[in-house]
Amino acid sequence: MALYIDRYGEQQLMHPIQGFWHLYKTNNTAMFGLLILSLIALILILSPLLAPYEANAQFIDALLSSPSWSENGRIEFLFGTDDLGRDIFSRILIGGRTTLSTAMLVVFFAALVGVLAGLISSFIGGWFDKITSSVIELFMTFPSLITSLLVVAILGPGLVNSAIAVSFAMLPHFFKSTRNAMLTQMKKPYYAAARLDGARGIRLLTITLLPNITNAIFIQFSLSLSTAILEISTLGFLGFGAQSPLTEWGAILGESRSYSYQAPWTIWLPGLSMLVTIFSINLVGDGIRETFESDHHLR
């Protein structure tokens, strides 16, 4: 007679999202990134309340005032002022809101169209897919900045137009990663099995395949966010993005460039806040990717 009852029943399996979080938590750098990112997001959401002044409020008596911690700095202007006497701290807060929200919209739009096109193209397959993907591949030989510059050149400068331009340039990447993921999945036996069971059309696409490529889309999404911020601010910097009175990180740097020597803080501080933001997004993005990749270790 056995002395012990069987102690190894089936393990309690976690819900995928729970399991994802369980794995993600163990990654210290990714958690650090998430912390910083949430902090930045909170600050930017609350920025109208936190910013001491209007973004375009000018203080004629305080042109090019140094940051508050330097010798000739003034306490009421934390990060100093620019050549028009505008408070840099307020401008960073309000400009960041513009940059980040535009970037998110851009990625969302690019993902929506790119993923849909990728899904349809790879699902239909055959000649249609061959032609579509070659056109997209051709399109990708144009460097992203050149594409978005051309779009802006035609539509004219402005925040909305630059957002359209960047999402236009970003579309092919979503198309490509979706298509690649689809092609991998469509080679797997479960797909053949589902087809033999009689599944077809929309059902096959949405119920059988889609859940298995969400990881790939999610990874592309998180990686694209930092690219979108960089590209939008680059256009802003070159003067094709947000036009005054709108404030935007790239535009702030573009305006400050001409007096960067006299007032280096007008370059340092907005740039550093950009760097920290993109850095934390990249840490989170890497964390998400690594978690998905190590997913098979989770039983």
Binding site: L230, G250, Y261, W268, L275, L283
Partner: peptide, 23 residues
């Protein structure tokens, strides 16, 4: 490496200019 990935090129160029060319 991750920091460099996060670096806005246009900002970094100006920073190098401020530090090593005009500074």
């Amino acid at each position: 490496g991750t920091t460099i990935y996060s670096l806005p090129v246009f900002w970094w160029g100006i920073i190098l200019l401020i530090m090593f060319a005009t500074g």
